[in-house]
């Protein structure tokens, strides 16, 4: 095993991450206005930006799903119990004792087990909930004639809201975790440059050196 600086976040993944971050912020800002928590933007403008922001995010996600499935990147998110307890123990105890993070990033496993589970939950639970409820909300007039449509709308709206609170809680923890380890900027850099320190097997290193040399930076 060699530790190399490898480009493990391809350009699309970074584009996806940052445009998604921007859209989530837009949706958070306009959504809280729609909910009546602030009046920094007129309601009509908030409706417009929230709707377009949501539609763009849905489109982005359709592309992202396609990308995950076709490139095999979905495999990074397969949940694994292997090492999970050690990571949990690190964040709960080890980090306070100055221990090193127990997880070494691998070429096909760039997230630690806790991270993978958290991202997977976000992708397969929270995002679908907020989308499905959002689309149901947006298309209310197509189903307004079902019995108790008003009550259903309220349920849909509350689920949407709850999912939004959960996503914002996720973002809070997500950003906080960037401060653990060496430094905030060190955690941030891979999602900008694409390069991160990864343990490569001999076969992986040999493959990259011969077929995709631009993804390898010299070891530090």
């Amino acid at each position: 095993m060699t530790e190399r600086l490898v480009k493990i976040y391809p350009r699309f993944e970074r584009f996806w991450h940052w445009s998604q971050a921007l859209l989530i912020f837009t949706l958070f800002f306009t959504g809280t206005a729609l909910h009546g928590l602030h009046a920094l933007i007129p309601f009509g403008a908030a409706v417009t930006f929230h709707t377009f922001g949501a539609l763009l995010l849905v489109v982005l996600w359709i592309f992202a799903i396609f990308w995950h499935l076709t490139t095999g990147h979905w495999r990074h998110y397969v949940p694994s119990a292997d090492g999970l307890l050690r990571v949990i123990r690190f964040y709960a105890i080890g980090i306070f004792k100055g221990e090193h993070h127990p997880y070494r990033k691998a070429y096909w496993r760039k997230h630690n087990p806790l991270q993978a589970i958290a991202y997977l939950a976000l992708k397969v639970v929270l995002f679908p909930v907020i989308w499905i409820t959002g689309i149901a909300y947006l298309t209310y007039n197509f189903w307004e004639h079902v019995p108790d449509a008003g009550l259903w709308l309220e349920i849909v709206a509350n689920l949407h809201l709850l999912a939004a609170y959960a996503i914002i809680s996720f973002v809070t923890i997500h950003v906080y975790l960037l401060t653990t380890g060496h430094s905030f900027s060190e955690h941030l850099r891979p999602m900008i440059s694409g390069y991160d320190v990864v343990d490569l097997s001999q076969a992986e290193e040999a493959y990259l050196a011969s077929d995709e040399p631009e993804r390898l930076q010299r070891a530090e």
């Binding site: 206005a33 309601f43 509350n158 809201l161």
Partner: peptide, 13 residues
Amino acid sequence: PGRGDWGIADKLG
């Protein structure tokens, strides 16, 4: 929406 109503989802959230 928009009336700042404090519902169950807000409390849980």
